[in-house]
Amino acid sequence: MPAVPPRPCPCGSDDRYDACCGPLHLGARQAATAEQLMRSRYSAYATDDVDYLLRTWHPRTRPDRITPDPSLVWEGLAVTEVVDGGEDDITGIVAFTARYRTPDGAGELTERSRFDRRGTRWVYVDGDVA
């Protein structure tokens, strides 16, 4: 039986999923920057990892539940702006455009997301959707 090639990470990095967002989803490590958290959250949406999404959402703004849309397929991510959110910051902003496809056609979601560091962990606070 041939080996299954490693899959690329949905976040758009040049790394494999098991070396990029996978360890964050499994809790093996934490996102070091706001951008890394945003990319890992996109990957969580792409892989339907609802637990990770809830774990990385600020408790003040986190919804009670997330219900994925099985007809929606995330197809790509482009980060368009990063303001702060580095390893020594306590807040950060990451703007992005995410492409998706539904049975009705293709679309894009553009958001400018806000992140806070709580202790040693970055969390998603909220975002402005364009």
Score class of each variant (00 low, 15 high):
13 S>I: 06
23 P>I: 13
98 A>E: 01
73 V>A: 14
19 A>W: 11
27 G>L: 00
59 P>T: 14
5 P>V: 08
15 D>C: 08
126 D>C: 03
50 V>H: 06
117 R>G: 07
35 E>C: 04
2 P>I: 15
2 P>L: 15
6 P>V: 12
44 A>G: 04
73 V>Y: 10
112 R>Y: 02
110 T>M: 02
89 D>Y: 02
126 D>F: 07
83 V>N: 11
2 P>K: 15
66 I>E: 12
22 G>V: 00
17 Y>L: 03
85 G>M: 05
60 R>C: 11
28 A>Q: 10
41 R>N: 13
126 D>L: 05
30 Q>G: 09
27 G>R: 07
76 G>A: 00
130 A>T: 15
85 G>I: 05
82 V>M: 03
105 G>A: 04
43 S>D: 14
96 F>M: 01
104 D>M: 01
121 R>C: 05
54 L>H: 04
66 I>Q: 12
92 G>R: 03
130 A>P: 06
31 A>L: 02
123 V>G: 05
50 V>K: 04
30 Q>Y: 12
32 A>N: 07
76 G>P: 02
45 Y>C: 03
86 G>N: 06
73 V>N: 13
54 L>D: 08
69 D>R: 02
64 D>G: 11
64 D>F: 08
99 R>G: 12
28 A>P: 00
62 R>G: 11
124 Y>S: 00
29 R>F: 03
44 A>H: 02
55 R>W: 13
98 A>D: 04
26 L>A: 15
70 P>L: 14
27 G>D: 12
97 T>S: 07
111 E>C: 02
28 A>M: 07
78 A>H: 05
51 D>V: 11
90 I>C: 11
37 L>R: 04
6 P>T: 14
32 A>F: 03
128 D>N: 07
17 Y>V: 01
104 D>W: 02
62 R>E: 15
106 A>C: 06
49 D>E: 12
42 Y>D: 10
40 S>L: 08
106 A>K: 06
3 A>H: 11
106 A>H: 10
123 V>C: 10
96 F>R: 00
27 G>W: 08
89 D>G: 01
51 D>R: 11
88 D>C: 01
90 I>Y: 12
12 G>I: 03
107 G>W: 07
47 T>D: 13
48 D>R: 12
2 P>T: 15
43 S>I: 06
53 L>Q: 08
81 E>S: 04
104 D>S: 03
54 L>S: 05
119 G>P: 02
63 P>E: 15
43 S>C: 06
23 P>Y: 14
118 R>C: 08
5 P>D: 14
80 T>V: 04
19 A>H: 13
84 D>V: 02
30 Q>T: 11
123 V>E: 14
105 G>N: 05
47 T>G: 08
63 P>Y: 14
43 S>K: 05
100 Y>D: 03
23 P>K: 13
128 D>E: 14
29 R>P: 00
32 A>I: 02
66 I>A: 10
126 D>G: 06
93 I>G: 05
125 V>R: 10
65 R>D: 15
20 C>A: 09
64 D>P: 05
85 G>Q: 00
98 A>Q: 02
87 E>D: 14
42 Y>I: 04
101 R>P: 00
45 Y>P: 01
39 R>L: 08
11 C>Q: 15
